[in-house]
Design a protein around this nucleic acid. Structure first.
Length: 491
RNA sequence: GGCCCCAUCGUAUAGCGGCCUAGUACGCUGCCCUCUCACGGCGGUAACACCGGUUCGAAUCCGGUUGGGGUCACCA
C-alpha cells in the first residue's frame, strides 16, 4: 500500500508539541518540545502547542500551568495553540469533544470503526484457548459481528467500545531519524479508539488533531514508534473520508536515559525540569545541554547559543541511540553560559537565588558589583549565596569556619595588615593589594598563601572565598578593619 | 514470547569506504598560571560488542550472533 506522505518543506512545515498535563515537566519531554521548536524555527514553519488532556483522572490544571511556565522559561515559543489561539482552536482536547463525535460518526458510517464488546480478560482467554501467547492481544474477531450477536451483548447490559479496522497488509514509513521501518501484516491489530461511554482515546484524538491541524512532521519520543503503524492506519481512514490528504512524516527521537540502562524516571529528581531551574541552571545552558542529547552542532563545539542551534538544526541529523542525562556535563555547559552573561545580567539572574540576603536597593547595588567576582566560580546560580553571603552579612555575624582558622602566628599578620590598611588613603583592590604585599610578603617575608589566608578568614570566615582584595574593596575599609579585629580577638 | 528500535572511550558525540596509529567535550588525572576556589593554558587516561561476508581497502555497506531498550491497555 503506497502512502501519500507529506512532502512539505520550508515554511510549509508544521510541527507540534502535544503533552499530556500529568505531573511536572520531564526533561525528556522538554527535549522533544525543543527539537520540534528548533525544527520549526529552522525551516520557517509553524509550531503548534496542543494539550492532550483526554484522561480526566490524571490530568491537572496545575500541570498545564507548569508546562507553559517551562516553555516560557526556556523561550520556546509557539505559533498556534493554547493561550495564543489559532485557526483550529480550541487547542485543548478536552474542549474538542464535538469535533471528535462528528468524526467518530463519519468513520463508523464508512465502516472504518466497528463495535467491540470483548473485555481484556475475554481476549486473553481467547488467545489461551487458541494456544497463542496470552499477551498477543486482540485478534480482530468482532470485525463482522452480526446484528443478533450485538443485540445479545447489549441484552447483557454491555456497551461497545469502537475499534479501527486496520489494513491486513504490511505498513512502512521512512522515519526521519531511523530510516525505513516496516511492520509486517498482522503485527498490529484493530485497536480501541473510543471508550464505551463515547470518550475517544489518545490513539484517536492524536492523529485526528494532527490531521485537522495540518501537521506535516511528527517528532516525538521513541516510545511511540510501535504505535505508528496504527496511526497510519487511522490516517488512511481519515484520508478516505476526506479529512486530510496526506500522512505526516515521522521522526522518533531517542530516549533520555538516567543512571544505568533505564529511562530517566519521573521519580528521579534529575528528570524534573524545575529541579534544574531551582538549582540554578540558566535557560541558555539547559537548552544547550538538552540539544546535545541526540544531536550535535559540530565535531569540535558543544557550547553554543540557541540561535546557532536553530540555524543548524535538522531532524535528520538526530542520532537514533538513547542518550544518558549527564548532570556533570550539563553543569559544565551551564557554567560556560553563565560566564557569557554580562555582569549586570548575571546580577539580575542571581537575585532570585540570594534569598533574603538581598533585600534592599543597597544590597542590589552590592550584588551587581559582586557578580563579576563569582562569575567564573559558578556552574549553577544556586552556588552564589554560599560564595557571597559574607558580603551581605553584618560584621558581627560572620562566623569563622573551623577549617579556616589560622594558627596562633596569625596575630602578627592581622596586626600588621590592620595597621597598613588603616593608613590607606585610596580604597581600591589595587591599592589594598599593593600595601599588603609590601607589608606582609616583603616586610614580614610571609608566603602569600599564609598571609592572605588569614585575612581571607577574617573577612569571609571561610577557607575559600572570592578574590580577597576585591572583596575588601566591596566591604569597605571600616568593615574590613572590624572583621580583622574580630578574628584577632579570637586567637 | 511476537513485532519494532538501538550498538564508537565511563558519559555525550564526530565519523556517512581510503583524510582514523579514530577527533572533540564532560569526567578522572599530571603540570603551568595563582591570595583560596575557580577560570584559562599544555599534557595524560580511555572506545569502533562479536562473527562472517562484500571490497584493493570497513568504525563506516550486507548477513548473522550477542547484549540493551520499547511495544503488544477501554494510559498517554
Amino acid at each position: 500500500m503506497s502512502a501519500p506522505f507529506s512532502t512539505a518543506t520550508g515554511t510549509d512545515v508544521r510541527v507540534r508539541f502535544c503533552p499530556s498535563p500529568t505531573g511536572t515537566p520531564h526533561v525528556g519531554l522538554i527535549r522533544t518540545a525543543l527539537f520540534n521548536w528548533a525544527y520549526a524555527r529552522h525551516t520557517g514553519g509553524k509550531l503548534i502547542f496542543r494539550i492532550e488532556d483526554t484522561d480526566a483522572a490524571r490530568d491537572s490544571e496545575e500541570s498545564l500551568l507548569q508546562l507553559i511556565d517551562a516553555m516560557r522559561w526556556l523561550r520556546i515559543d509557539w505559533d498556534e495553540g493554547v493561550e495564543v489561539g489559532g485557526p483550529q482552536a480550541p487547542y485543548r482536547q478536552s474542549q474538542r469533544g464535538s469535533i471528535y463525535a462528528d468524526l467518530i460518526g463519519k468513520l463508523k458510517a464508512a465502516g472504518h470503526l466497528y463495535e467491540s464488546y470483548a473485555t481484556g480478560e475475554e481476549i486473553e482467554a481467547r488467545n489461551l484457548a487458541a494456544g497463542r501467547d496470552p499477551k498477543q492481544g486482540y485478534d480482530n474477531f468482532e470485525r463482522d459481528l452480526t446484528e443478533e450477536q450485538r443485540l445479545a451483548y447489549r441484552a447483557e447490559g454491555r456497551e461497545p467500545a469502537l475499534r479501527l479496522r486496520v489494513p491486513d497488509t504490511e505498513l512502512s514509513f521512512d522515519d526521519l531519524v531511523r530510516g525505513e521501518i516496516t511492520f509486517p501484516a498482522g503485527s498490529f491489530t484493530d485497536f480501541v479508539v473510543v471508550r464505551p461511554n463515547g470518550a475517544p482515546l489518545y490513539t484517536f484524538v492524536n492523529p485526528v488533531d494532527d490531521a485537522l491541524m495540518g501537521v506535516t512532521h511528527v517528532l516525538r519520543g521513541e516510545d511511540l514508534l510501535s504505535s505508528t503503524p496504527r496511526q497510519i492506519a487511522l490516517y488512511y481512514a481519515l484520508i478516505e473520508i476526506g479529512v486530510t490528504t496526506f500522512i505526516p512524516r515521522f521522526g522518533h527521537l531517542p530516549y533520555v536515559m538516567g543512571e544505568g540502562n533505564k529511562k530517566l524516571s519521573k521519580r528521579d529528581p534529575e528528570s524534573n525540569l524545575f529541579h534544574h531551574r531551582d538549582r540554578g541552571f540558566i535557560p541558555e545552558g539547559l537548552v544547550n545541554y538538552l540539544s546535545l542529547l541526540g544531536w550535535s552542532l559540530a565535531h569540535d563545539r558543544d557550547v553554543f547559543s540557541i540561535e546557532e542551534m536553530v540555524a543548524a538544526f535538522d531532524v535528520v541529523d538526530v542520532n537514533p541511540n538513547p542518550a544518558r542525562f549527564d548532570l556533570k556535563k550539563a553543569e559544565s555547559i551551564n557554567g560556560d553560559h553563565i560566564r557569557m552573561l554580562s555582569s549586570n545580567e548575571l546580577a539580575k539572574r542571581l537575585e532570585p537565588y540570594m534569598g533574603n540576603l538581598v533585600a534592599s536597593e543597597i544590597d542590589r547595588d552590592l550584588l551587581e558589583r559582586a557578580a563579576p567576582l563569582v562569575q567564573e566560580r559558578m556552574q549553577l546560580l544556586g552556588e552564589a549565596p554560599t560564595l557571597l553571603a559574607f558580603l551581605f552579612t553584618p560584621d558581627e555575624d560572620i562566623e569563622f569556619d573551623a577549617d579556616a582558622l589560622p594558627g596562633a602566628d596569625a596575630a602578627l599578620i592581622l596586626d600588621a595588615a590592620s595597621t597598613a590598611i588603616d593608613g590607606l588613603e585610596s580604597w581600591t583592590h589595587d591599592t589594598i593589594e599593593e600595601v599588603l604585599r609590601v607589608v606582609l610578603i616583603e616586610g614580614l617575608e610571609l608566603k602569600p598563601r599564609t598571609a592572605f589566608g588569614a585575612l581571607r578568614t577574617a573577612i569571609s570566615g571561610k577557607r575559600i572565598s572570592p578574590p580577597l582584595f576585591e572583596s575588601m574593596e566591596l566591604l569597605g575599609k571600616d568593615s574590613t578593619l572590624v572583621r580583622i579585629a574580630r578574628l584577632r580577638s579570637r586567637l
